[in-house]
Design a protein around this nucleic acid. Structure first.
Lengths: 196, 196
DNA sequence: AGGGTTGGAAACCGATCTGTTTCCATGACT
DNA sequence: AGTCATGGAAACAGATCGGTTTCCAACCCT
């Protein structure tokens, strides 16, 4: 029985997992059953299924981000902090239970870019790009704006490969991100140029 | 009325479009209505909706490929032929009616990698990788296998950006692919080393 | 013109969808 | 102990799902 935490938390947790595993077309009945919450309660806590989609995606954002990003206690150079994201992603893919980035998958399934869930997905991608951008500025990269977008693109490309189960060379994301950083002059030996 | 071509062709055409635009969860009724074909005929021509998904995806593969790949009459160096794929993709994205790679979207929605539609998607991605590989071998690249996969990954990453409507720098795919080719020594000035 | 095949329109099946409602068991507060 | 709010179980509504079947109009060939 899943009777810990509040009904709202249980719903967000179950929704986050089931929407990702089975797609956003999973029924509300199955969702509520998994959460141990009645439909009545669900519709008191959320206006609609669409709102639950968006809120569950948003609620899992921080933990997903924490899983990928290096913490502030990691004081290695920006280049290593950036590559950490791709290393962690590769680990998830290697574990075999990686179903693609939940935000991208949800946006793909929803189709409508105005859907609240698509908006959340877009914001999450922006957060990732912003992280890359901050680190690239620290590293003194020449065009951090473009490079940050390129890195995000590689991240999503690596996700897509996992989804279609394309032949996977382990570490292809790290390898490609590193190649781009090299090309941009953000080398391993580069000193972090703090502007603080 | 859509009464040209055979019912089978009309179905494949409508299915290819509607599955892509509305997702694979669109109903068989809507599909048949769009194709001007009865459900009875549909189920005489295809064993199930799942088979129709796979066959419509497969049937649109060649034209999608022709849209992206340079033809054999394009005798420019391999590097240019490779970049053509990304240029054409950028054009599609810029037109605004780009909903992501149909193969990746379908695989994302189906979840099950054993689904016949997912198998078709995987094969399509392999074809793209194979094209890159052939060109890279022609260009004498050092590690064509890895680089071909990296290019495919960039292709899918660029698709994902379009789907989530992330901030789009025009030509980010071309730019990134070119950077990778540069890093691998497949330069614009490189002479094609035909092994024929 | 007449016989036979093709294929569309639509009813039908049971299951499931989102969302609402009713009913009742439980637990907290006084 | 008695009142009251919380929330789960489940029936319900109307629509739609994938898939099957019936019926009939339109065409083919001789």
């Amino acid at each position: 029985m899943t009777t810990s935490a509040t009904p709202r938390e249980r719903l967000l947790e179950a929704a986050g997992e089931l929407f990702h595993r089975d797609g956003v077309n999973i029924g509300v009945d199955a969702l509520c059953k998994a959460a141990g919450v009645s439909k009545k309660s669900m519709y008191q806590l959320f206006r609609s299924k669409d709102e639950l989609i968006a809120e569950s995606l948003a609620s899992r954002g921080p933990s997903y981000q924490a899983l990928l990003h290096p913490g502030p206690e990691d004081e290695r150079p920006a280049r290593d902090r950036i590559l950490t994201v791709f290393e962690r992603q590769d680990e998830l893919v290697a574990q075999g239970d990686f179903l693609g980035c939940p935000h991208v998958s949800t946006a793909v399934e929803l189709k409508n870019p105005e859907h609240p869930g698509s908006v959340v997905a877009r914001h999450f991608k922006q957060h990732l790009t912003d992280f890359f951008h901050r680190e690239l500025v620290k590293a003194g990269a020449e065009d951090p704006g473009t490079l940050a977008i390129q890195l995000t693109m590689i991240f999503d490309g690596a996700s897509a490969r996992a989804v279609v189960r394309a032949q996977n060379l382990g570490g292809i994301g790290v390898l490609t991100a590193a190649a781009l950083l090299d090309a941009a002059g953000v080398r391993a030996s580069e000193l972090a140029a703090q502007a603080g």
